[in-house]
Simulated assay, not measured.
Amino acid sequence: MKKLFFTLLFFGFCFMLSAQTEPKVGDELVINAQDGASYNYIKFPKLNILSKRGKVANYKSVHGNTVVVDEVITDKNNNTYVILKKKDGSKFFGFVSEVKANYDKSIAAGEMATKA
C-alpha cells in the first residue's frame, strides 16, 4: 500500500510539472541576449535582410524585450511553436509584427525566459 501511494504521488508530481511547461495565449516571455551571432529557435529575419532594409545588422534591439504569446501551434511531431508579438505593440526591427519560435527548445537554449 505504501508503494502504491508513493507511485501515485510521483505520477501526480510529474503530471503537474509537465502541465506547467505548456504555453498559453497571453503568457509573457522575455527575449534574452544570445551568445552566438544569431538566434537558433526564434525565427528573426537574417542579418542581411536587416541591412537591406536599412537597419543595423544585429539583434541588440530585441534583447530584453517582453513579448506575449499570440498563438500556440503543436505539429504532428509534438513540437510546440508559439507566435510572439511585442507587448508594447511595436514591431520587431520596425517591420516585423510577429515572429515564430520553437517554445521548448528556445527556453532550454536560454533564448527566451518566462517572465517572473
Rank of each mutant, 00 (worst) to 15 (best):
M1F: 00
M1K: 11
F5H: 12
F5Y: 10
F6W: 14
L8E: 07
L9Y: 03
F10K: 00
F10C: 03
F11S: 09
F13K: 06
C14E: 09
C14Q: 06
L17Y: 11
Q20S: 14
T21M: 02
P23F: 00
K24C: 04
V25N: 12
V25W: 02
V25H: 07
D27K: 11
D27V: 03
E28C: 06
E28V: 10
N32C: 12
D35L: 08
D35W: 11
A37P: 00
A37K: 06
Y41C: 04
K46G: 07
L47E: 10
S51P: 13
G54K: 13
K55H: 07
V56C: 08
A57E: 15
A57K: 15
N58V: 02
N58K: 14
K60Q: 15
S61G: 09
V62G: 02
V62D: 09
H63F: 11
G64D: 11
N65D: 15
N65R: 13
T66A: 05
D70N: 13
E71T: 08
E71S: 05
V72W: 02
V72I: 09
I73S: 06
T74Q: 05
D75V: 07
Y81T: 05
Y81N: 03
Y81W: 02
K87D: 13
D88N: 15
K91W: 08
K91F: 09
G94S: 15
F95I: 04
K100F: 03
D104V: 04
A108P: 15
E111A: 03
M112T: 08
K115R: 02
A116V: 11
